[in-house]
């Protein structure tokens, strides 16, 4: 095969430009998935962070990709009715009745079983563990197997949990479930394995509309703080004094 000098230069240039552009694209995608800059040493210091989560219900389209991504990422069984995150649909009928549903935690999306003309309004509300500042689940654990980390995440020690399920009863948000394989309680970790490496939780990354925002509340410029500083926010069941760290924008009074 004969290649002229001119052709060789042409191909060479294309390869170089292509590679450079490709890297730039990949880099930009990856940087979008980063929650915070990893520290220079690569060691994660949990005292340097305090995580928070914002859900803008006005943006959610109920596609259920978050719930799906969560099950994939965290090895949550697809064939059991257990969810670390899910999306609820609220439909207020013209006659006044409120219909709420979340079939299979929204993983398969939603079906239009009520004609649009009968609806007054409708919206989606993503739900996830609130990683409460004052977590009732941690309070009631009889052996201290569930705990809050310094960076504000509530976790379960699977090697210590006795499986009494008191924490599941104690959670006002239905965020916990029993992991039948492990024989322990289980719940959302805000993808602790990811966020401590500087990545975003799987649900946040999967959201195509930016309804889920995750970030460091200790960082004044974080995406979470940008919203908290500007928007009027609410939390779920504030009267219970749990101090949730999942903040909602556009929360309707029907949502509990």
């Amino acid at each position: 095969m004969n290649i002229s000098r001119r052709e060789f230069t042409k191909i060479g240039c294309r390869v170089i430009i292509g590679a450079a552009a490709g890297t730039a694209i990949v880099e930009s995608i990856v940087s979008n998935g980063i929650a915070a800059e990893p520290s220079s040493t690569g060691d994660y210091d949990w005292n340097e962070h305090y995580w928070g989560y914002v859900i803008d219900t006005r943006k959610c389209i109920g596609c259920g990709r978050c719930a799906n991504a969560c099950k994939l990422e965290n090895d949550v069984p697809f064939d059991e009715p257990v969810y670390r995150t899910w999306v609820e649909r609220y439909r207020v009928l013209k006659e006044g009745e409120v219909k709420i549903d979340s079939p299979n935690g929204s993983i398969d999306g939603f079906t239009d079983d009520i004609p649009a003309e009968e609806l007054k309004k409708a919206f989606y509300v993503p739900k996830i563990c609130n990683h409460c500042e004052n977590p009732p689940c941690v309070q009631v654990c009889p052996v201290g197997a569930t705990y809050a980390t310094n960076d504000g995440v509530v976790l379960v020690d699977y090697d210590y949990c006795i499986g009494c399920r008191y924490c599941i009863q104690g959670c006002p948000y239905g965020a916990r479930y029993f992991n039948s394989k492990k024989g322990t309680a289980d719940k959302c970790t805000w993808c602790y394995h990811r966020i401590t490496k500087g990545l975003l939780p799987a649900c946040v990354q999967a959201c195509p509309v930016g309804a889920r925002v995750f970030g460091d509340m200790k960082d004044p410029d974080s995406d979470v703080n940008k919203i908290l500083d500007k928007e009027r926010i609410n939390v779920l069941k504030p009267d219970l004094g749990t101090k949730p760290k999942v903040y909602y924008v556009g929360l309707d009074r029907e949502v509990k």
């Binding site: 309070q139 009631v140 009889p142 052996v143 210590y160 949990c161 006795i162 322990t184």
Partner: peptide
């Protein structure tokens, strides 16, 4: 219990904020 063999931990490491402990 999901882990009856760990039940004894309630004696060894009771988490005192829990009514159950």
């Amino acid at each position: 219990l999901g882990h009856p063999e760990r039940g004894i931990e309630i004696m060894f490491t009771p988490h005192l904020t829990s009514a159950m402990s």
